[in-house]
């Protein structure tokens, strides 16, 4: 790589805008018992689904007269399940005060349910200076690239974007992406594209031998082998009419 002759030393500190992909924890109830039961059932089968992702409590759906949930307890519960809640959004003044006491930040007036949460803990110096990204790309996270075989029991999730896998996805492994999935090797495990409902997501592989494919929640299993035209061959999987899995040779 060409280098400048006299590289200026990097400053000790730089400020840049960033968009964090995170998880929204949408509260429909503030009741301790109800939350506790649901958390337990939700995570019973997959206690280590999350791996330390940032999370925000979305309070917009709570009834106006709802009491404040036990924020400290909620945060602790989520933390023990691999989520890192750091803020509440769309909270009433009362809820916000309680959340603040529990050490959470307040993000108010955030549009509910964007694909990626814009979480700027502090006001940025010059928000206008940032060139507005094209609308189609605004919610896209960087493509995730995996170059080691995914083995039985392993699961990778590309939040907000695509995933490219350069090694085999073995039986029992799971690839999940909010966008499309590209596997340039045998796909023998499960592939779930459009995990947050993007019906235009697709799955591509150079060797289709999957156990299950799913796009935006519409899935197909392969108890019987797929057509000879695509079995163990390059194929693309897409959704037609928003409800029909189509598998075509590539």
């Amino acid at each position: 790589m060409p280098r400048r002759r006299e590289p200026r030393p990097a400053p000790a500190l730089e400020l840049k805008t960033t968009r964090l992909a995170g998880i929204q924890v949408i509260l429909n109830s503030a009741e301790h018992a109800a939350l506790d039961t649901h958390l337990s059932t939700l995570f019973a089968a997959t206690p280590d689904f999350f791996g330390g992702e940032a999370a925000v409590f979305e309070c917009g759906r709570l009834p106006a007269d709802a009491p404040s949930p036990d924020w400290a307890w909620l945060a602790r519960e989520l933390k023990s399940r691999g989520l890192n809640p750091f803020a509440v959004q769309n909270a009433s003044a009362e809820l916000a005060a309680a959340a603040q006491q529990a050490g959470l930040l307040i993000l108010n007036d955030v549009a509910p349910a964007p694909a990626a949460i814009a979480a700027e803990p502090e006001p940025l110096p010059e928000p206008e200076a940032v060139p507005a990204p094209e609308p189609a790309l605004s919610a896209t996270a960087p493509t995730r690239i995996i170059d080691k075989p995914l083995r039985s029991g392993q699961r990778v999730y590309a939040a907000g974007g695509d995933i490219v896998v350069l090694a085999a996805v073995n039986p029992g492994a799971e690839v999940i992406a909010d966008g499309s999935i590209h596997v340039y090797a045998p796909l023998k495990g499960r592939a779930l594209a459009g995990a947050r409902g993007d019906t235009s997501a697709r799955i591509f592989t150079t060797h289709l031998e999957a156990e299950l494919v799913s796009i935006a929640g519409v899935y197909r299993t392969f108890d019987a082998a797929p057509d000879a035209a695509v079995a163990r061959k390059p194929a693309q999987i897409r959704l037609a009419d928003a409800s029909q899995i189509v598998i075509e040779p590539l």
């Binding site: 083995r151 392993q154 073995n170 039986p171």
Partner: peptide, 13 residues
Amino acid sequence: VRDSDRILGIIQS
């Protein structure tokens, strides 16, 4: 073979 695959994943993590 499936179980060996699983244990390899655990070794790697």
